[in-house]
Design a protein around this nucleic acid. Sequence first.
DNA 1: GGCACATTGTGAACAAGAGAACAAGGTCGG
DNA 2: CCGACCTTGTTCTCTTGTTCACAATGTGCC
Lengths: 219, 219
Amino acid sequence: MARLPVYLRTLLDVQTDGVTTVSSERLAELAGVNAAKVRKDLSYLGSFGTRGVGYDVDHLLVQMSRELGLTRDWPVAIVGVGNLGAALANYGGFGDRGFPVAALIDADPTKVGTTFGGHTIRHLDDLPALVDELGIAIGIIATPAAGAQEVADRLVAAGVTSILNFAPAVVTVPEQATLRKVDLALELQVLSFYGQRDSIGSALREELGVAAAAKNSGA
Amino acid sequence: MARLPVYLRTLLDVQTDGVTTVSSERLAELAGVNAAKVRKDLSYLGSFGTRGVGYDVDHLLVQMSRELGLTRDWPVAIVGVGNLGAALANYGGFGDRGFPVAALIDADPTKVGTTFGGHTIRHLDDLPALVDELGIAIGIIATPAAGAQEVADRLVAAGVTSILNFAPAVVTVPEQATLRKVDLALELQVLSFYGQRDSIGSALREELGVAAAAKNSGA
DNA sequence: GGCACATTGTGAACAAGAGAACAAGGTCGG
DNA sequence: CCGACCTTGTTCTCTTGTTCACAATGTGCC
């Protein structure tokens, strides 16, 4: 379930506020979803709520962290140290949350060996060794679109079965692996789609208003 | 439909290869989806295919660009010039695709006035003026979680109705606005969830195998 | 100790989305 | 000009996910 992390974050927030129990309704409000959905999602992990009272925040956090596999660190390798890869490597938000950047990888020989953000950039060919050595669990693809599929194949071959793809390309992986994608251009295009609809909406309202009037007067 | 941009990119690829017509089946294969879904999605924009032949790539691209509102540029404002915001500002992938970064905005007085990547950072209070002046159509929230909701409110108040939220927080906007979110930590947590399941899978197989054997021998 | 109240957990209706199958319609070869 | 073939557009079915509603159940008060 992709909603568990949202609940987790919400629970951490209320925990910080000193709250010890929370009802499904309150949690739903804070997480921006339906209360029934919250209860169903939580019941999927087992029954940890007390009827009449709600859920114990600490207990729920423990269970949820365990379910999400957040009781350990998951070392991440970033493949492709271009603009985006460098940005992600610099972005501190990963390590804080249990996903330390353990390796930077590129295929460009002029980049390999240089240091960036405390990491020496390694060559893509070293991937299997790095996986063994550092226990890489997750691979982030930040290459141009053209190289994405090959990188994914190599990651899987090296034993990395969790992949996050930032490249604007369709990538497929064998069933044993998990692939998620973040496509920034796609998000913007979807926004532009809605923006477009809204703006032509206002423009068309007049025109259609006129057309409708004409049609009415015509009929 | 969030799949249109994927089709668009795929069509651009095949166009580059000199292909002039494409069947729904081929398009589906390249886009990684079902052929029936492709036909249904495309028919939603009107009937542009020719039976027995397929879709004309150029024609489809024109129609699709229009539908997605990509016939014009959509100036983007990035709010929050921390690690992530700076990374996004540096990332060239936006401008190329019709989403030029028109403004960098922050609330921190020590950042306001400094220049980054060719843009002078402006204060959040200037937002309405910037929207008028530069025609900002899309706002990107790259602030810490705590400030995200306020920024969203201000964006909407200034007339920006398309918002992309990178902050790890639940943000709500009025119905007239469109909000999409990209949550990097969430993506990693989902991956860790699957990774966890797989690894406990192998660990549990033994244990459950033992347990099952014990149960069998006991019965 | 029992009763009213609050809240969970779940079953059942409902809506949305995906996939398969088929009819309509156009193209190309003869 | 006609027929075989190919591909679209659409309908129908099925699955999946969401929401509603209610019974089960624990808590605190009297």
